[in-house]
Design a protein around this nucleic acid. Structure first.
Lengths: 144, 144
DNA sequence: CCTTACGTTGACGTCAACGTCAACCGTTCC
DNA sequence: GGAACGGTTGACGTTGACGTCAACGTAAGG
């Protein structure tokens, strides 16, 4: 009940190995089942197949949360794919690791730029609000 | 020379009323002329028309900068349109102002959510980098 | 056994944000 | 004066991120 859509970032120790259907994850994350399947087509998540049905585990939910955060930030899904795959690759050899470090640097630069953009936007919003309130109080000096 | 694409946020006092061609603004802002025209079709900028040619003024550059910042943040252009139009509307009457204040609140909420997402992402990147460097130093204890 | 609910696979549709191309116009410069 | 250059207007193409629809499978409940 902490957030509007049930905030499924949980890892409750009492549920040892829960499983979820597509309808459950879709609803909990506030997306359609089509979106979930689309992400699977792009390799962003790969749920277990039990017969023909998809079975989602905590791992899938973790990845989906990462994907949706990337989406909120406006990243294209292909880039998101590379990002989430950075996180659960095996340690790898030195070339891989150096490459990964480079990717990390790039991503950090990008995110820091975005943060600056956001700070600037917020500041300008503050300014605009001040002007707005000033104009408003100029219209009616006493609140009716 | 502060940024890669000449950072055209200037307002040099020595140039009293400069004008720009589409090629100039496109190059300085790092977009194509098609993009600039597209933004005009959507009403995001409205350059002067001298005969058939477009003539851009500081006002257009200011708006374009706002638009591109919104784009970097991943906002859809339609939403960006509403945002930039918030900034240079006339003061308006009390209903308008109240509405505007509501919009400001909404935008702020959105931006703050994004900022949280970015902070989280940056933290996780830090973690990943630490793991990465640890793995790397485990491979070659002395740098060759 | 039949319905109902949920799930699955294509496959086509859509919408935003441009890219690309053709055809054309107006200066300018040799 | 004509060729090159930059600009303009359609108009169609493309890509990403899904929406939507049809047709079908299957497990559960009455």
């Amino acid at each position: 009940m902490t957030s509007r859509t049930t905030a499924p970032t949980d890892a409750l120790p009492d549920e040892p190995a829960r499983e979820w259907t597509i309808a459950e994850v879709a609803q909990e994350f506030g997306v359609t089942h089509r979106t979930v399947r689309h992400y699977e087509e792009l390799g962003l998540i790969s749920p277990e197949r039990r017969g023909t049905r998809r079975v989602y585990h905590r791992r899938d939910r973790t990845r989906l949360a990462l994907v949706l955060r990337g989406r909120r930030l406006g990243f294209p899904l292909e880039e998101i794919s590379r990002i989430v795959n950075m996180y659960d690759e095996p340690p790898g050899e030195q070339g891989q690791l150096a490459y990964l470090l480079g990717q990390i640097t790039d991503r950090r630069r990008d995110l820091e730029q975005r943060r600056r953009d956001i700070e600037d936007s917020l500041q300008e919003l503050d300014e605009l609000e001040r002007r707005c309130r000033r104009d408003l109080s100029a219209l009616e000096p006493a609140s009716p």
